[in-house]
Design a protein around this nucleic acid. Structure first.
Lengths: 287, 287
DNA sequence: GTTCCGCATGAATCGATAG
DNA sequence: ACTATCGATTCATGCGGAA
């Protein structure tokens, strides 16, 4: 089995990215620090300056990504003074202007969202998962993320309706039943663009940027084994760890030394484990 | 009991709205024609011209809405040639520029989204429910939309039709008179900003833009009895019918004569029913 | 009255084909 | 080349008739 490499760089993404070669990454999955004018430390980017702050990074990512690669950006605008900020909308427009294609917007529905109560709004239970691409012909391995078919299929799908079978022949609609074999014994279907996942706190010290299942889903969907996954805001290293488990090479960049040390120690631990008997990689179904 | 009035105007919203008085409406809930959709009926609006087309209407809506009222806009951008269009993002920015506050974005998760398969994307299963306000001190009756705690409670709207059997048949529509005994003794919680519900598939003539539960939820949340609800793109009249059932006054505008006739005939039918013994209006909590 | 089951039909999107 | 139209693909639901 070929070796899998996990790299972690300490430093500012804007600078470190410049050292990476053109067209070398298959997938970028990241959750950058959200804008918040109050925090002046990590994560404290002024909302008004957010687009300006991100664009140099976007430019480097565009250079580094392979033409058939994908960039997934997890982000959600804060509410401030009773309004939703518009910097995410502006960021989308600006990235398009930079040459990115805004291919899709997935919704991450957080089942257990942050608690709280306000007179003018309910709890925010979703985040944007923006998909950007360099070209229109990117890799997408849809079969890798198929999900079990809904209960409605039990018994009902066994005998397809006659009208569905002739829907195409009679030209009275859209050709359901053109390829009946697709439906016989069907147990899985393709998912849609809404992801239901719970947030998880797998680290007592650091709140995870996102649950394992999130990068896992996109890594399955947009890469194959031995491809290269990049997270320019690695944080506690969720994306890198998941990528490694899935036999993808990965590169992380993180500005905080303590996170980098955490990730490095885990990589070492991992290399030690490599001498032990291999555990077969097991594909996990995500709801 | 005070009389409830339901009005429907035939004509172009941009013009008809001018005849309505300032600060007279408590809630606007509408689903305007999407760009390039419903070409057969509405002719379709060019995506490039969408913002330009909508802004004059937005201006009138801003004038007509009460200072403590709310405007809910149901919309979703289309995908074309491998990319999501940006006109909805631009519309949000333009409406803010016009004086609207972009207070919140709810997600409508459509469980039964349109089928189809493409090499570059999955099925689109969500739409935007954009909330705009005139001021930061709008009315919001959060207790009215509390849901019982449980597996389907988390921000999830129970499909009204599930309880059709228990529904009071004398009332045509939105699930009032529904048996809520199974809610007794259950603890209730506030919902969040993700709404789960299916589109209603009609086997019959007229399809509704959105299911009854959608306007119902917002009417409960943002109005009280005898308030005024406006739908400037009334279509088959879902919003008006639901508003009427909930004892709210309502105003609709629709450009297609056949829809206006349909709505008018239903209003007449309704007035006839008024002579029959009144059934007490029963507030129903919808999950 | 229930429950079961057949069936029509969607705010879709892309690629091929035709003008 | 560029635009309009058409064909192919696909899933979940409520309705209504049957058991």
């Amino acid at each position: 089995m070929q070796e899998i490499k996990t790299e972690i760089f300490l430093g500012d993404s804007k600078e470190v990215l410049k050292t990476l070669p053109d067209n070398s990454v298959d997938l970028i999955v990241t959750s950058p620090p959200y804008a918040d004018r109050r925090k002046q430390t990590y994560g404290g980017i002024n909302p008004e300056k957010y687009v300006e702050w991100f664009l140099p990074i976007g430019k480097e990512l565009l250079r580094i990504l392979k033409p058939d690669g994908t960039f997934i950006l997890n982000i959600k605008e804060k509410a401030e003074n009773g309004e939703r900020h518009t910097y995410v909308l502006e960021l989308i427009l600006a990235l398009r202007n930079q040459g990115w294609l805004w291919t899709e917007e997935f919704i991450w529905h957080k089942k257990n969202s942050y608690p709280g109560k306000w007179p003018n709004r309910f709890r925010d239970s979703w985040e944007r998962l923006l998909q950007f691409n360099k070209t229109r012909t990117f890799n997408m391995y849809q079969d890798e993320v198929k999900v079990p078919i809904g209960d409605w299929a039990n018994g009902r799908l066994k005998n397809l309706s006659e009208t569905d079978k002739i829907r195409d022949n009679a030209k009275n609609g859209s050709g359901f039943g053109k390829n009946i074999s697709n439906w016989l014994g069907k147990e899985t279907v393709y998912p849609n663009n809404v992801l239901h996942l719970s947030t998880e706190c797998n680290n007592k010290n650091h709140s995870a940027a996102f649950p394992d299942a999130l990068p896992e889903w996109f890594i399955k969907l947009f890469t194959k084994e031995h491809d290269v996954v990049l997270d320019p805001f690695a944080g506690s290293g969720t994306t890198l760890r998941v990528a490694e488990n899935m036999h993808r090479n990965s590169i992380g960049i993180e500005i905080l030394p303590e996170y980098v040390e955490l990730i490095k120690s885990r990589i070492k631990e991992r290399e030690f484990v490599l001498f032990e008997p291999k555990v077969a990689y097991e594909r996990v179904k995500i709801g």
